[in-house]
Design a binder for these strands. Sequence first.
DNA 1: ATAATTTTTTAGACTTGTCTAATAATTTTC
DNA 2: GAAAATTATTAGACAAGTCTAAAAAATTAT
Lengths: 219, 219
Amino acid sequence: MLSLAEENYLKAIYHLHHENNKAVSTNDLSSLLDTKASSVTDMLKKLADKSLVVYKKYQGVKLSDRGENTALKVIRKHRLWEVFLVEKLNFNWDEVHDIAEQLEHIQSEKLTDELDRFLDYPKRDPHGDPIPNKDGQFEVANKTMLSELEIGESGICIGVKDSSSAFLNYLDKQAIALGKTLTVKEKESFDQSMLVAYDNKVLRLSEQATQNLYIKPNH
Amino acid sequence: MLSLAEENYLKAIYHLHHENNKAVSTNDLSSLLDTKASSVTDMLKKLADKSLVVYKKYQGVKLSDRGENTALKVIRKHRLWEVFLVEKLNFNWDEVHDIAEQLEHIQSEKLTDELDRFLDYPKRDPHGDPIPNKDGQFEVANKTMLSELEIGESGICIGVKDSSSAFLNYLDKQAIALGKTLTVKEKESFDQSMLVAYDNKVLRLSEQATQNLYIKPNH
DNA sequence: ATAATTTTTTAGACTTGTCTAATAATTTTC
DNA sequence: GAAAATTATTAGACAAGTCTAAAAAATTAT
Ligand SMILES: [Mn+2]
Ligand SMILES: [Mn+2]
Ligand SMILES: [Mn+2]
Ligand SMILES: [Mn+2]
């Protein structure tokens, strides 16, 4: 059975690997996990000994099949608990991440699967991220960044890249939520900001905002 | 913030203290927690440094007010999660303890209180144990051991002392559940076993069984 | 009241996961 | 292609929580 620390490393390696599609560097792990690089090196050796990662000195690290499987289980739990907190316990989407970071380490396959059933097998978490099923499979959505849309194009907001409280609160304040249809009215070449229409309003969104909103484009 | 180990010690001290109403010994803690006595001594010193317990060498340990408060919070969480698992996730009462041992350490007051609300402020857990409210208060039931009842007396089964899987499974097999009315028909002085009537049957219960069933006596 | 037994504490060690400081390898710059 | 900068690893230390073995205190028995 894996420790909390080991599970967190596997999850971090999974996320970083699927961001850039190449071996994950010690420093990237160190900054994501908020630990020193030397601690990361130590842990990578341990994970390699347990055949959870493939690690060669100075060449970064990748998950083994077993490692990826384990990471997906942790991610599944994280996202299911986030759904539970929002759907059943009245939490807002900006409040759930830290608690899910704790709950994702609870060990009980029956608990996970019963929770999944209780929530009616949700496909996405409150931030739009896909929830792996019991076998680790999940649906990849057809999505682009809002910043990629051209003037006149529109699409449905289906997720956030940055799920920090700060960004989620900003979206709440602007009444931008998952499921809303956004239409690009103008793009400012000076600062890449956009005028975006939705509901009955038009709003200017900064580049930081448009580069963190996932859109399912219409057509 | 307290570690998982510290919380488990506080909870163990709480339970042992309220069993015998006297200072808790190192060996009793050691056997309940399944650690060596020397480890217990080490931890008691740490807890005393943090003013969570009152500890004097060779004289056992008691909880401070802060320590008792903390223990009650952990117990509250443990029992609320047990209710959740049974009421919402289809768990049987003999399957919930080990998972609740993990869930009781999740840190979020809002989570605990929302869970309480979601479950409709339950007063007792699946084993009949009282659930402390937000302020640590709980209802003490008027109860005796089944073994204390005289022939002809009856009462409602409201809890178990031993909540091991083995005992709970045995009760399931005999269809003895919380809420059932039991009537003592005979007591055997040789082995303290009892003939007990409930539903439409009469059953012989051993001393081990009758000393682990809590009864709310009629009148 | 001494001896024997039991309980508890101390001393020293080990594991996990982390850190700092120093060193080594790799990559970038000129 | 050497020097400089960056990235990664090693060496040695530390805190938490545990262990074994030995010593000390308390309790029980004679
Ligand atoms: Mn999250
Ligand atoms: Mn999420
Ligand atoms: Mn329990
Ligand atoms: Mn219980």
